[in-house]
Simulated assay, not measured.
Amino acid sequence: MLRLPKNRFAVIGLLEALGQALGMAAAAVLPGASIPVLAQTFLIWQILFSIVFLKKRYSSNQIMGCGLVLFGVVMALTSTSNSFRISSSNEGLFWPIIMIISASFQAGASIIKEFVFRDASERLQSKSVDIFVVNSFGSGFQSLFVLLLLPILSQIRGIPFSELPGYVKDGAGCLFNIGNYHADCYNAPLLTSSYIAMNLAFNISALALLKSSSAVVASLCTTLAVPLSIYMFTLPLPYVGVPASLPPQFIFGTTMLILGLAFYNFSDRLSKKQKGSP
């Protein structure tokens, strides 16, 4: 581990921090159902970056699947109805574009991680570096850069830098129910703890699934998570607000996106399996 350059982990942390900061800023404004759709542009960015930096080559089926994903995102992005609108008339497509840009930073971090694993195999004489080591170093730098990016994030949300300490203080007071704060802060500890618990459970489940089954099963679960997460935002759940009815164009775009993900993940594997069969 000591032989691996640590500056790569710093770059990973910076990219993930940028992706998280911009993504959270956009998620606070965008409709909940649109977030998992826009986040799927991660695949498009990942393909572009891997072609440029890792010199990877993709099959026509994978490119076609990526095209379906892009088409689905565009269809969903331009869909509107009386109760559902991804972008406001005043801000246009600013926040959807911010969400898409945040996916590019996350994709860039994943490409560097892949490069780290490849390079580690050469530096460590065919020994692989543990995935938890890479995630731990990356997460450590990510936490540092998130704190450093708070002034930039506050400017994006229209908060002057001089008022940022007050916002941090009020946020901490709301989180821990200290002082006289708004009634909405009553459940802040529960919501924050629930988010952390669900995030940990998701990451552990994903790693356990990948370890115990195969990449095909993991890809299938990831694909199925998109419509399920969109459907959850249409239910009358606590703290979600009034569920919006999704316009037909959004549903059509989401369907195309899911088909693109499935086509990208499974078409090549199926064709290779058929070629290998007697």
Rank of each mutant, 00 (worst) to 15 (best):
L175W: 11
F176T: 07
Y181W: 05
Y181R: 15
A183M: 10
A183Q: 11
D184Q: 11
D184Y: 09
Y186I: 12
Y186C: 08
N187S: 09
A188W: 08
A188M: 09
A188I: 01
P189S: 07
L190Y: 11
L190H: 10
L190S: 07
L191K: 12
L191W: 09
T192H: 10
T192V: 14
S193C: 05
S193H: 06
S194N: 05
S194T: 15
Y195M: 15
I196S: 04
A197M: 13
M198K: 05
L200G: 08
A201Q: 07
A201V: 02
A201W: 03
I204F: 15
I204T: 14
A208G: 07
L209M: 14
L209P: 11
L209G: 12
L209F: 13
L210P: 09
L210T: 12
S213H: 12
S213A: 11
S214Y: 05
A215I: 05
A215L: 09
V216T: 08
V216P: 02
A218K: 01
T222H: 03
T222W: 02
T222L: 04
T222N: 11
T222D: 07
A225W: 01
V226P: 01
V226D: 01
S229W: 02
M232C: 10
F233L: 02
T234I: 05
T234Q: 07
L237A: 02
L237E: 00
L237D: 00
P238E: 04
G241H: 00
V242M: 10
A244S: 11
S245T: 12
S245E: 11
S245H: 10
